[in-house]
Nucleic acid binder design. Structure first.
Lengths: 218, 218
DNA sequence: GCGAATATTTGCACACCGTGCAAACACAGC
DNA sequence: GCTGTGTTTGCACGGTGTGCAAATATTCGC
């Protein structure tokens, strides 16, 4: 990798880290682009070369999660039932590092509309990318509506799982990753089963529905 | 209704209309808050009393659609199968007036990130409201994750339907409303059936799956 | 290594944004 | 009318986001 590429990656990371540190210490929305730039050791102008706004610098991690999921999905065997691949792609992605930061960022969005919007945009971008990947996999037999509705629903369920996880799981829990994985699995299973019956709430992770239902041989 | 209330409603509408007119004539993102205010006959400061940004003034119609859907849903018989109510609530809402503007706004979002974010935020707000309504209806037997995943998926499907509709349907088509209704019905039916088999694409609206499947007696 | 070509960073300028504040104004109720 | 309350307005101010050109860093051919 050339010097140029590496420098850009480093700079981007430095800015994102500075933004996250600031958000953590003074709260989201309570700091300026200048402060981020200063802490990252770049000029204000350079900050805006990398991100459109302070909040955008906080979606790098979320983007990373979704890109990783997309990558994992791409490496699934093509013959595997569709929902199998989807579920495994997202639940395996929970084994990535730095997951607790995601929870923190999710919670921050509750008190900061701009950050929420930036995160929603991040999901939206992922939706487009995943829809494209899925189209390549399924070919042109499927309708656009089917494809986009499916991808949107999958991401909505994943989002709901992460929200629930962020809201209920202690930040430094030992089994944080497993907690998230269980919720993603649960939500996507509900989706595959058409939300047919309401699922009792309360303590999650017990009696997870893992029974691989028949059919689903897309 | 008192003078005060009526004035606020009028002002809000005047601003929203001014914003929409401007977006239509010069394009989204190509006008300032000052211009909206001037056209609406209020001061710049007053504009910001009503909306946080120029783009926010363009989500009033979308908010209206979603609030209307929520209202329709609330008036459904409580004993009706859940998906019946949901599908009817959204598809009946397509009979509202001014639907073509929604299509226009959807398309505008393709070229304007800020508008897209504002619209995503609008859907997000609706998601929260609908989840609350659903919780009141279903009681506390359902888990939070089930509820939020369901609502998110339903709205994702509706969103996908509107996107497809906005992209493929002529703005001034006579049967524009029916076109949208058919797509919403199709997408929500896919969801209810767990996206079990890929649906062939191409010309929509023929052979719509209307068969009321058994079960679903939530 | 050296210099030309190319990419990135930086400072500057500028229009615009979003909000606190207090005065002016409009409406409601008595 | 007169008073209390809610709304609009102008003003000021710090912050945002971007075009531009000069300065700086990296790459590549030689």
């Amino acid at each position: 990798m050339g010097r140029r590429e590496q420098n850009k990656i480093d700079t981007r990371r430095a800015i994102a880290d500075a933004a996250f540190d600031l958000a953590r210490s003074v709260g989201p929305g309570a700091f300026t682009a200048d402060q981020i730039a200063e802490r990252a050791g770049v000029s204000r102008r350079t900050f805006f070369n990398y991100f459109h706004s302070a909040e955008d610098a906080l979606t790098v991690r979320m983007d990373g999660f979704l890109e990783l999921a997309l990558g994992v999905f791409g490496s699934m065997p093509a013959g595997e039932p569709l929902f199998e691949s989807i579920i495994r792609a997202f639940s395996e992605t929970t084994r990535m590092e730095g997951l607790s930061q995601h929870g923190e960022l999710f919670r921050m969005a509750d008190t900061n509309p701009e950050l929420l919007r930036a995160q929603l945009h991040s999901w939206e971008r992922a939706e487009v990318l995943i829809a494209e990947a899925l189209r390549r996999r399924l070919g042109s037999v499927t309708g656009d509506l089917y494809l986009t509705a499916l991808v949107g629903s999958v991401l909505s369920c994943t989002k709901a799982a992460m929200r629930d996880w962020a809201a209920t799981t202690a930040e430094d829990a030992e089994d944080s990753g497993e907690q998230l994985e269980a919720r993603i699995l649960a939500a996507l299973t509900m989706l595959r089963d058409g939300f047919s019956e309401p699922v009792a709430s309360g303590a999650p992770s017990t009696a997870r529905a893992t029974h691989a239902s028949p059919g689903q041989s897309v």
